[in-house]
Simulated assay, not measured.
Amino acid sequence: MSDIETRQKKLPVLLFIRGEQYFDDVDPDATELTTEGTLELTEEGLLLTYQETALTGMEGTTTTFEVSGPQVILRRVGSVNSQMVFEEGRQHTSLYETPYGELSVDIQTSALRHNLSERGGLLEIKYSIAVEHTVTGRNSFKIRVKRK
């Protein structure tokens, strides 16, 4: 398969996702999810896409990680609509739409690493989150991607 064919194709992948939320002096709250998704190479980088499930409380939502250069954009569309921008050492503010209204969310990324390619790899992000400018905790997630 040529580079051009690879770049225009959504490759089936398995995603192993582990998210952790840390609150003051409490053991982290961890969520683990294994799901099928797609990996697509783009001019700007790559896209990881998967469907949320009842386990995450966001059934009916499509989640996409857009990885380009030093930045990762997390987009959710469906029962939950949001966009979160992660860039190490920078803060980004976005709106998080819920059935109850919109919230302002500040994301401060402390670490962002990945070695993703068409073969798979690992994406790791550590960040703190503030809702309506009040810090609600520190979070991290790791996504291991394996070609099917």
Rank of each mutant, 00 (worst) to 15 (best):
T38I: 06
T38S: 14
T38F: 09
L39S: 00
L39Q: 01
L39W: 00
L39A: 01
E40M: 13
E40I: 00
L41P: 04
L41H: 02
L41R: 14
L41K: 13
L41I: 15
T42S: 11
T42E: 07
T42H: 08
T42I: 10
T42F: 05
T42A: 08
T42Q: 10
T42G: 08
E43Y: 00
E43M: 06
E43P: 00
E43W: 00
E44A: 15
E44F: 10
E44W: 04
G45V: 12
G45T: 12
G45Y: 11
G45Q: 12
G45C: 12
L46F: 03
L46W: 02
L46M: 15
L47Y: 06
L47V: 04
L47H: 14
L47E: 11
L47C: 05
L48W: 04
L48R: 07
L48G: 04
L48Q: 05
L48D: 04
L48Y: 05
T49K: 14
T49V: 08
T49I: 06
Y50C: 07
Y50M: 09
Y50F: 15
Q51H: 12
Q51E: 14
Q51M: 12
Q51Y: 03
E52W: 10
E52G: 06
E52L: 08
E52M: 08
T53W: 05
T53C: 02
T53D: 02
T53G: 03
A54M: 12
A54R: 13
L55I: 06
L55M: 11
L55Y: 10
T56S: 15
T56M: 05
G57N: 11
G57P: 12
M58W: 09
M58L: 12
M58C: 10
M58A: 12
M58H: 13
M58T: 13
E59H: 06
E59Y: 03
E59T: 02
E59W: 01
E59F: 04
E59I: 02
G60I: 08
G60E: 07
G60M: 08
G60W: 05
G60Q: 09
G60P: 11
T61A: 05
T62Q: 14
T63W: 01
T63D: 01
T63C: 01
T64S: 12
T64R: 15
T64Y: 06
T64V: 14
T64D: 04
F65L: 13
F65Q: 00
F65G: 00
F65V: 01
E66F: 07
E66D: 13
V67Q: 03
V67R: 06
V67G: 03
V67C: 13
V67Y: 03
V67F: 03
V67I: 15
V67H: 03
S68C: 09
S68Y: 09
S68W: 00
S68Q: 13
S68D: 09
G69R: 11
G69L: 08
G69D: 10
G69C: 09
G69Q: 10
G69K: 09
